[in-house]
């Protein structure tokens, strides 16, 4: 395989990895857009989603699509519950204390799940035949295509919700300015609650897809992808939906390229390094608008 071939193959690897980051990053960025909270528990919501999908497939013997939907609904409700119980009482507290609460929620989800499902990794049953398609010298398999496909569908639905529905309008208004939105008659609490629901559902979808694709889930699986998705969101410009997707895909491709052409051990360092460089030249991310701070 010559250089171009390997490059294209790494691009395929990177985009399929990046679409998972993108799904998680969307939730991060939506939540950040509205209440300016870095929801560190988001990666663990993704983990819970994976487990719910796992139990739906193994215990309730569902096929993959219903399992995905069940997981999205249940995890979406969990996201609302977390918001209601842990973040809402702190709406007017300093932002840092909500952040610490988010870390607390993250620890709680990780170790409560570890207690209930044990730290041993679970293996997802093979729900989709994984056929490898050889397109010329390149390998793409069915699951990779499924991940990219489902990510695309979910993003279209999300864009529709945000751009065309009343709820979406309210979300955009609230992310612009919560107080003014409230004065205009928008029930901010409800909008925030729905935002958590949608964001968590997307994370759950990512969790189930990862479970199917990599075949293995464990209670601490959310830590690194959560962090990476946060990086992706910031890279694209936090609070901006297309930014999260762009950031996720770019991050996935960077990781694949660094592992492929340099060394896997520097993969994460390179990802962070590029993030920092981007921030230094464009402090609000790739798609972010540079806002001058006013007095």
């Amino acid at each position: 395989m010559d250089f171009t071939h390997q490059f294209v193959q790494q691009l395929i690897n990177g985009v399929s990895l990046g679409s998972i980051y993108a799904l998680i990053a969307l939730g991060y960025t939506m939540i950040y857009g509205i209440i300016k909270l870095i929801n560190f528990a988001h990666g663990d919501i993704y983990m819970v989603g994976a487990y719910i999908g796992f139990f739906a497939v193994t215990r309730a013997e569902m096929s993959i699509v219903p399992a995905l939907l069940v997981s999205m609904v249940v995890t979406g409700l969990l996201g609302m519950l977390v918001e209601r119980l842990a973040y809402k009482p702190l709406r007017h507290a300093p932002r840092i204390s909500i952040l610490i609460t988010a870390i607390g929620v993250s620890f709680f989800l990780e170790y409560a799940s570890m207690y209930f499902v044990t730290p041993t990794p679970r293996t997802f049953p093979n729900v989709i035949d994984n056929i490898a398609y050889n397109i010329g010298p390149f390998v793409v398999n069915g699951q990779q295509m499924m991940i990219m496909g489902i990510t695309l569908i979910l993003m279209v639905i999300l864009t529709y919700i945000v751009q065309k529905t009343k709820l979406g309008k309210a979300m955009r208004a609230a992310s612009f300015d919560v107080e003014t939105a409230q004065l205009m008659g928008i029930n901010a609490d409800r909008v925030i609650s729905y935002t958590f629901c949608i964001g968590s559902a997307l994370a759950a979808a990512a969790g189930v897809l990862v479970g199917v694709y990599y075949n293995s889930i464990d209670p601490l699986m959310g830590i690194m992808p959560g962090l990476k998705a946060f990086v992706a969101a910031v890279l694209g410009g936090i609070g901006i939906l297309p930014g999260a997707v762009t950031g996720g895909i770019i991050l996935g491709v960077i990781e694949a390229m660094v592992s492929g052409f340099l060394s896997s051990t520097f993969r994460d360092a390179a990802a962070f390094g590029i993030l920092i460089l981007v921030l230094l030249f464009k402090p609000s991310g790739l798609l972010g608008k540079n806002r001058r701070e006013k007095v």
Binding site: A86, L90, A93, P94, T101, G104, F107, F108, Y111
Partner: peptide, 18 residues
């Protein structure tokens, strides 16, 4: 340990966010 630690953290932030 970690579950209790997490709960202490959350409760503390509720009652003394500062």
């Amino acid at each position: 340990r970690m579950i209790i630690y997490a709960l202490v953290l959350i409760l503390l932030m509720f009652y003394r966010p500062q």
